[in-house]
Design a protein around this nucleic acid. Sequence first.
DNA 1: TTGTAGGCGTTATCAT
DNA 2: ATGATAACGCCTACAA
Lengths: 336, 336
Amino acid sequence: MTIKDLAAQTGYAVATVSRVLNNHPNVSEKARAVILQAVEESGFQLNANAKQLKQQHATSILVVVKGTANELFSELLETIQSRIAETQYPLHVDYLDEQANEVRRALQLCREKKPLGILFLGGNAENFRAEFEKIDVPCVVLTNDMSALAYENLSSVTVDDAEACRCAVDSLIERGHRKIAVISGDPETSDVGRARYEGCLKSLKNHGIAFDPARDFRGVRFSFRDGYTATLDLLENGSEFTALFTASDVMAVGAIRALHEKGLKVPQDVSVIGFDGLEVGSYLVPKLSSVVQPAQMMAQRSVEILISRIEGEAGAIHETVPFELWERESVTVPKK
Amino acid sequence: MTIKDLAAQTGYAVATVSRVLNNHPNVSEKARAVILQAVEESGFQLNANAKQLKQQHATSILVVVKGTANELFSELLETIQSRIAETQYPLHVDYLDEQANEVRRALQLCREKKPLGILFLGGNAENFRAEFEKIDVPCVVLTNDMSALAYENLSSVTVDDAEACRCAVDSLIERGHRKIAVISGDPETSDVGRARYEGCLKSLKNHGIAFDPARDFRGVRFSFRDGYTATLDLLENGSEFTALFTASDVMAVGAIRALHEKGLKVPQDVSVIGFDGLEVGSYLVPKLSSVVQPAQMMAQRSVEILISRIEGEAGAIHETVPFELWERESVTVPKK
DNA sequence: TTGTAGGCGTTATCAT
DNA sequence: ATGATAACGCCTACAA
């Protein structure tokens, strides 16, 4: 079933059918009605390949997700989905490994699919620096600040990771904690991991708190397992702390388990703060304290920014959305 | 950049370039080398639209995921991704709302994208019964048994939900529990919810245990929140139980929180068993007992089945993979 | 082994 | 308002 068949069926020419299908002007009401009727009956659907071949680009928006197992990304994606669904643009989601090069992948997908714009969930500034120039559609990166890269078609929506972590650690210190350990992403390989770690350091330094990175810090992957093993590692290697800051909620869950296995209670023996504000945190016992990234807002803004760039607005926007510090049951004052 | 340009550049005809690009025989070593060289240098990429338009179908495999926020699906997807990556087939992931009609969506994507085959994560038998006949590529449904539907191109990979739940409840009874409550998906709208609920009923009946559905059962959505509210609802409406079976781990997490808020300890006051075997369960305190769906195996088998159907093997396979019952810290014997 | 040319289903231009 | 037709980039008989 093609528009040719449809044309034959209705007695109109393919051009007219095409016009109706694309809501173009200069079609009589009668023709429109007749053709729409036939479309309805046959369940006809345009061939996207032919259309895109002709138009030289898709009408779709691409989402490149770095890392399949990231809960925050799932939450972001959910909102992105529904926001994009409100527009006429189809959405394509593409997943890659955490270690893969998202820019190179996007480049390939651009050539192949010619999307109108790209949303990146996660990303590494180094990859963008190296090859982003080759991408010429509007892009928005979520959760990773790209303001240092002055590409006019590369925007980003983030919370201020360093500042957020500074606040979180500040809050621990305000409660009286002086012995604090930190687990974050590897500063060498993860931009986000580094920013969050540095925020912690800043707070510790501001308050003149003793902190020996070799003893009190671990830079690992953002996973349950790594949160768990890193905590055991800290405990077994001389770190003594009454508060633990982990740069993700998933790490925090692993960490709490490790603390439990070492006979330490949360929050009585150790206070724990995570990062992200995942839904699961609200149902844990104890309810997890967390630096909340406003997922809905971030998703919403990123879609708005992307669509405005697609529809003609020019220039990059690097938007910082406000984080929130939720201090819940997993934190308390240190034991005397 | 098109194969025409490439042809001009190398002095060969487009046909030869195409042959090289598609690994066809009847190309001289020299031509192959020269053309590959040029491809390398220019970073040339075939236009997928033109290719698919011509070939009448994509070379891709489609994954239709029902529900964005399903952790089990994320775990399945991760394995599916990596297994498919080992083949030459590109992968497309399409997400829909939990309430959407996955078969209708697949139908649309078929017309639009002409995939080689489809993998469904989740699905409703009713939807398949109504419209699946219109889909003519091989399909495999994960987690929902479709053996009752005799389509020759519709396979499924599942655990025996009812049997698994029967075992789980049996295990509670064996520990001495007589007062058991159940939270599952809504039997009216969720096939999986119904099967799991019925498995529970069977065990209870086999053992002659008193069970009043109105008092001891809730059929809700598979979410943290619904697990939480359903548990409160049970407790506040006269259900007294020493053990709670929830048909998903996510529900279990919500349930445990609710129990905690009502002053009930897990497992001392109430034993809890979930379903799915999500990674997070291994890090909770207490470690969550669960009926484990072997996600890796299911993903692996579904990909194998799909690919074999795509590559010529005929006939549907309805494979039941073995579940495992992990009895961990969230269960114990009832208080005397 | 290589080249030529037609057509896949659309859109868009140019007539009518 | 409608129709005929030339592309879009690729694959694939068929011819050489």
